[in-house]
Design a protein around this nucleic acid. Structure first.
Lengths: 212, 212
DNA sequence: CCAATATATGAACAATCCTTCGCTTTGAGG
DNA sequence: CCTCAAAGCGAAGGATTGTTCATATATTGG
């Protein structure tokens, strides 16, 4: 992710030995686990360290404070999601609009579903975190990828693709989040997913400039 | 809201004198203000009481703990929003689908926009709050209202209205939230609002059973 | 005007929590 | 093998927070 973290959220140093890299992984994993098992308000530096099997002091050698740990965690996660979406977009370059929409929703949905508990935990961990810039960078990255894809569509072109594209992403992101915050039956979730695809597609059809 | 709060979140007692009612109002208002000015992690019982101009002890006479205060606040808020949506639905009974969609989005969007800072503060206050039942009750209440409205549409009827309706609401709720979490320029917000209406409408058009 | 009840007070307590720092252990390069 | 930098340790300090309770004041119905 391009966004440079605000100074007070930047990591203190990067790991130089393999041992340190492993420690960092353990810390991140422990953070997720504590988040899941205890919730954000019981997420303690000590608890995370304990769960990771390291000492608090070790944690503070990499992160200047608790927030920066959560920031880094979100950064990691968003990076992975963005990559998946970008790949999906590249793969559908030049395809039909229907295929594109389906692939986009599929990639994003799948990325969030793979470990839906983690997804939910991270949504919550981000509260009160000064990560607007992070979200913005993520949004713009995905925005660029989908615009590139859509403008290569074999069966349509649009007057105001920028707006259409932003709308599309806002709707998809928001819907996915909303579905996961409530705890809907899996079947209904799947149904909504499909309906969402239908909705996006009919939106694009209504907005396109007919081919000559 | 129908949902009975979990025992540990129920208020301790209701105000019986006018004085007490005023105190409660002050406490709620203070909670919002502290939430806005300091954020959730600095929302302290003492701080809230101070801002409300009452003593901590007073607060604890009505709420058994901090969470129950936030729960009650959300309850209040959701009740207001639900009422507005219900009213909009009643007013458009028997109208055209286009009018309905426009009115629905308008009502919900307006309810959230009126004090968008408060909206955002409340979204955050609900994190880590055991309010699933509350959200569910809200969702079902709105669901019932919109289903009643849509099934009275003068120009369309649908095969699986239940699913279509749930999808519609999930998309609208999610999109609105997503727009408010990011801090988009007001102009763009308005544009997206309109695009969302277009999208919902074309979705409904695609899904309807043609009149005979 | 007088109980009886409802409200309000706020100092004090016990429980965490974040962060630091002096110290030890481990790893890598020469 | 030896040395220096990297990594790891964890008790302790300082600060904050949620909640209680003994006490004081206000309101109401009779």
């Amino acid at each position: 992710m391009a966004a440079t973290p605000p100074a007070h959220l930047s990591p203190r140093k990067r790991p130089r030995q393999a041992r340190a890299a492993a420690t960092l992984d353990a810390i991140f994993e422990a953070t997720i686990q504590v988040l899941l098992a205890e919730g954000l308000h019981r997420l303690t530096t000590t608890r995370v360290a304990e769960r990771a099997g390291v000492s608090v002091g070790t944690m503070y050698q990499y992160f200047p404070n608790k927030q920066s740990l959560l920031y880094a965690l979100n950064e990691r996660y968003l990076d992975i999601v963005a990559e998946k979406v970008e790949k999906a977009c590249r793969d559908k370059h030049g395809a039909s609009t229907a295929e594109m929409v389906e692939a986009l929703i599929d990639a994003y949905w799948r990325a969030k579903t793979e470990r839906s508990d983690v997804t939910r935990a991270l949504y919550r961990s981000a509260v009160e975190l000064d990560n607007e810039a992070l979200i913005e960078a993520f949004a713009q990255r995905v925005d660029a990828a989908t615009i590139a894809m859509l403008s290569s569509a074999s069966d349509a072109s649009y007057v105001d693709l920028a707006l259409i594209n932003t709308t599309l992403l806002t709707v998809i992101f928001g819907t996915v989040r909303n579905v996961f915050e409530r705890n809907l039956p899996t079947m209904l979730e799947a149904d909504i997913r499909n309906q969402l695809a239908t909705m996006c597609l009919s939106y694009l059809k209504a907005a396109r400039i007919p081919e000559v």
